[in-house]
Design a protein around this nucleic acid. Sequence first.
DNA 1: GTAAAGTTTAACCACATGGTTGATAAAGTG
DNA 2: CACTTTATCAACCATGTGGTTAAACTTTAC
Lengths: 205, 205
Amino acid sequence: MTDREKDTEELIFEAASRVFQKDGYAGARMQQIADEANINKSMLHYYYRSKDKLFRAVFQQQLAHFFPTIFELLGSELTLDKKVPRLIDAYYNFLQDNPKVVQFIIQEMNNHPGEFRKFMSERNIQPPESFADQIKKEVEAGNMDPVEPRQLLISMVGLILFPFIAQMMVKTVFDLKEQEYIKFLKDRKWFLTDFILNAINYRKP
Amino acid sequence: MTDREKDTEELIFEAASRVFQKDGYAGARMQQIADEANINKSMLHYYYRSKDKLFRAVFQQQLAHFFPTIFELLGSELTLDKKVPRLIDAYYNFLQDNPKVVQFIIQEMNNHPGEFRKFMSERNIQPPESFADQIKKEVEAGNMDPVEPRQLLISMVGLILFPFIAQMMVKTVFDLKEQEYIKFLKDRKWFLTDFILNAINYRKP
DNA sequence: GTAAAGTTTAACCACATGGTTGATAAAGTG
DNA sequence: CACTTTATCAACCATGTGGTTAAACTTTAC
């Protein structure tokens, strides 16, 4: 692989990432991706064969980046009062650099359910059982209220992700300018840990 | 307006609602909508002029249905421990009949931010100030922990909506079949009230 | 009964789209 | 060097797309 090859292929991939994230699969145009990458449209097909294949490459890369990081953290040995802020932090760091990726993943997850299922099962990406175990133990030890681990997981993830997913709703309904929205997210970082730990009545052992 | 007129126009609108919700603006095809409605494609243009106009009609109807109901409830005189389950109930009732509408609104909100802004400001759709007032009063009365009302609102809405928005993620990650997913949602209805009221340490006055 | 207005349809159109091709250049290889 | 492979590009193609038209049919109005 010469430098040039790699450059072009990478250029395409990055341009495609941006365009697909912005407009989704159906809304994205091959020409638009080519323009974004400053290359001839034929190159897209030369390197990726079809819109579908190019899309899959982008989509899978995002998935591969998105889930494992978080699930790893969930399975770690940290106590809940440390784990929750770490989880929030991990998501926020990721989303700071990729603010559109959640919307993208959620949207295309629903449009290409087969693709998504296959990807997850092939790589055996699952929430670690150790998280459910941890919750059970904490409940038994009387450190928190009894909670269905899956409900808790979805609640945490929803609380964190929702303002990113519904970015435009938050901005519009509260009439926030970009800077104010960013401040809202920042404030939320601090807000969330207490909110979650309170919700399950967590008490440090 | 004859019966027939109304029928056709309504048929188109309903078909369009379904198709747009399923595939989004960019993914939807006029022919597909026509087929769904069992009418000639020309009728779409006869009644709605263009894809854009038809889409707006559908989108606005969804918006008009979605926000006011909830904001009205938020502004009501109920105490928090009654208001929260009522809010959850209201959302669930709405989403049972329109399971795809949240995804649709959130997706198209981001794709047509101008349209959305205009709609909301023209009709002056806002979260009622009385909700923020209520929170402040409850905090002052010592019935709950101090919370930024907007953070609480987004948290409640996020907790409720996220499993609907990320339906496919929930199903796949937890490997749930349709019935199990529905049960998960149902269980969540009960789970959420406690979770939210605990989170803010609400104590009945 | 008939003309006007409203409704429906098949055939069509211009254009954008994903994708292909064949020519050309550049880089690797013996 | 010859010559094979890889990379790039402009022009092209088939198809699908939103949208139009003009004629036929139906309903309403007088």
